[in-house]
Design a protein around this nucleic acid. Structure first.
Length: 246
DNA sequence: TGCCATGTTAAACT
DNA sequence: GAGTTTAACATGGC
């Protein structure tokens, strides 16, 4: 479930089911004050990067699905011990499993920078470029996973973006030529929308060109698999096609 | 069966 | 105190 586009899909499914409904009861093993949620009306659902945000009049429930989080509607599909939050909304029951649940007080516009979310209509290329300028020594594989710069980008998007723009994951931000930096920022958003489209069509894996792949579709040479950067996440790349600037 | 992974945080190290 | 490493969470695919 975890990358930004997957969260957006969940939001789109849940929003019509939840918006405007009153929470009749809240339970689960999330370490939050459940009582605070009862009798509150759900004002709106949003998402930022990998966060699903359920806003009530005075606070927001923040769901982060981590690696294995799931949800279900009306039917409890998992064991109690992984049930973090159950919301009873009239006849509807919404379940969240193995996720991180937090309550955020007040106005979330003060917490979240919508311009930093690659899928948001307010996404700002200029702002991303500015943030990147401030981290010249960071490897691009780490920068793409930095949620402060590219909220919503995960490891799959990282690998596919770098493959598309022919850039080596271990290239440091400061040595990327300006035009290549532009394509990086562009493609982080662009690929995220392709991911969204393919995920909705259940054809995401089919479209992977780098992630978990063995052969470069461009030059037919074997792809390398390496745990790169400070984040030490799997990188799949072609050392022949993907340039490492120095 | 055992390992690994679309992720993040916090504790435990140096 | 800063920076780095490890553990924890818990499930499903191969």
């Amino acid at each position: 479930m975890p990358e930004g586009p997957s969260i957006l899909i969940i939001k789109e499914i849940l929003a019509p089911q939840m918006t405007g409904k009153k929470i009749l009861s809240a339970s689960g093993n999330a370490k939050i004050d459940m009582a605070q949620l009862v009798d509150k009306k759900i004002v709106q659902l949003r998402c930022w990067g990998k966060h699903l945000l359920i806003s009530l009049p005075d606070c927001t429930i923040r769901i982060h699905f981590l690696m294995f989080g799931t949800y279900s509607i009306d039917e409890q599909t998992k064991q109690d011990r992984s049930l973090r939050l159950k919301l009873e909304l009239g006849k509807k029951h919404i379940y969240f499993y193995t996720c991180s649940v937090k309550l955020l007080d007040g106005d979330i516009n003060l917490i979240y920078d919508w311009e930093g979310d690659v899928l948001n209509e307010k996404w700002s290329m200029a702002k991303a470029r500015k943030k990147l300028k401030e981290m010249p020594g960071t490897m691009v594989c780490d920068a793409l996973l930095d949620q402060q710069v590219f909220a919503g980008v995960g490891n799959i998007i990282k690998n596919e973006v770098l493959y598309r723009i022919k850039l080596h994951p271990e290239t440091r931000i400061g040595s990327i030529p300006p035009r290549k930096l532009s394509s990086l920022i562009n493609e982080a958003r662009n690929y995220s929308f392709d991911f969204l489209k393919w995920k909705k069509a259940f054809t995401l894996k089919k479209h992977w060109l780098a992630h978990t792949k063995k052969i470069c579709s461009r030059c037919q040479l074997p792809l390398l698999k390496k745990y790169c950067g400070k984040t030490k996440r799997r990188s799949f790349f072609c050392s022949n096609c993907q340039i490492k600037y120095k």
